[in-house]
Design a protein around this nucleic acid. Structure first.
Lengths: 226, 226
DNA sequence: AGCAAACGCAACTTCAAGTTGCGTTAAGGT
DNA sequence: ACCTTAACGCAACTTGAAGTTGCGTTTGCT
């Protein structure tokens, strides 16, 4: 049906059509995404304007309005572009070292102005932007699943208790870091990260001399703290 | 100089002056603060407008502009009014129960639309609003110091290892909760809270049979996990 | 080379943000 | 009960960013 009708020109618009993912459009896109993240970093989501992004990107604002339309879509695309960068999951052979390395890379990553701004924007807009929320859910599900491998391997090696939920263990490492990053604002230094990992690994309960009947209480023998 | 000049009327403006903290102003203030938090809850900080708050509060917008001037100051005052409400620190005699109760109350509090919106607004604006940042720092310093008493008491009772940093222990409890609240968006149910407290109390490291020479490794005797 | 998609540009509309002047209400001292 | 004035209501205004439209120009692709 409709083999060589003149209307086929509309469907396949002619020789010199097709998309152009490698040319000017790509450069503009890259510049706009970079500018979006930079604007987000110094001003936050609530102060972000398409005109500001256009100025910084050296691009006219009509381009932004035509290609992205709203600031929501622009920010979402910028975030996806950055969040898509793969992270590496440490595998040193020791859970403690793996978790510490995970904590260090997470903290270092979060120390980046763009990433920190992204986290803040997500925290602010997650309830009011369904698409952003969905993308964010996927991001964290994937990331936690990847990081959980650290704990899964450790369980297989016998380093970690068999009943441990790997995801929750990772959350216990990342939680305090993001608490400081987003809310308390306290510095995230090496000592803090080590302390976080120590708590996750060993807990805070006082090691107790074994007394035979370990009913309810979790008997341990004394050990040096840290 | 200038003992009884007519200009003294300007300095002490006459009999019926003085502030009126108990009357209409107070009612307006209460209505505006409530409206601010409500608007913050459904729309977020970036969508908050003084006109919207005025509409919801049943107050004219000029009142807001004259009394608060900017949306930053308005939000800050609203937050301070709500954050000033005192919280109670559990004291059941058992750290585990105390921490679980702390986690439960924190989660229940954070489940409030207004409080959740406040947390999101703080996360979003903290780097761009010095006054909000300062107030937030004080809030968390006070709150962590209060909650840390739980751990301090437990150390005295011998329930918790002596070298434990009480503040960091509290951060390890609150961190995962706020991670879910602000970023991952996963549900915060009872099982999760118990899991968080379990990790903080006991850690995830596999309890090991004592083998005499506990060099480097942290020897424990076997125990059921949870 | 030639075509069209994507961009630049300027002028325009729209509307929320914020301001000003003046009249009105009501809190609180006497 | 009265009177002063701080605080609020109201309408009209200015301002500026957000978003749109039409048209000319550039540029990647075949």
């Amino acid at each position: 049906m409709a083999t060589t009708t003149p209307k086929a020109r509309t469907r396949k618009p002619s020789p010199a059509t097709a998309r152009r993912p490698g040319g000017r459009s790509a450069r503009v896109r890259a510049a706009v995404i970079a500018a979006t993240l930079t604007e987000l970093a110094d001003g936050g989501y609530s102060a972000l304007s398409l005109e500001g992004v256009a100025r910084r990107a050296g691009v006219h604002k009509t381009t932004l309005y035509r290609r992205w339309g709203t600031r929501e879509k622009l920010v979402l695309e910028a975030m996806l572009a950055r969040a898509g960068e793969r992270i590496s999951v440490p595998d040193t052979g020791s859970v403690r070292t793996d978790l510490l390395e995970l904590a260090r890379s997470a903290a270092a990553n979060a120390a980046t102005p763009e990433v920190a701004a992204m986290a803040r924007a997500v925290a602010a807009q997650e309830p009011h932007n369904p698409r952003l929320a969905a993308a964010n859910q996927r991001f964290w599900a994937e990331r936690l699943a990847l990081d959980a491998v650290i704990v899964e391997r450790a369980i297989e090696r016998g380093e970690v208790a068999a009943g441990t939920d790997p995801r929750r263990a990772i959350e216990s490492v990342l939680g305090p870091i993001h608490l400081r990053l987003l809310l308390t604002g306290e510095p995230i230094d090496r000592a803090f990260l080590e302390g976080v990992v120590d708590v996750v690994m060993d807990g805070i309960a006082r090691p107790q001399a074994l007394d035979g009947r370990g009913e309810g209480v979790r008997p341990r023998i004394s050990r040096p703290w840290r």
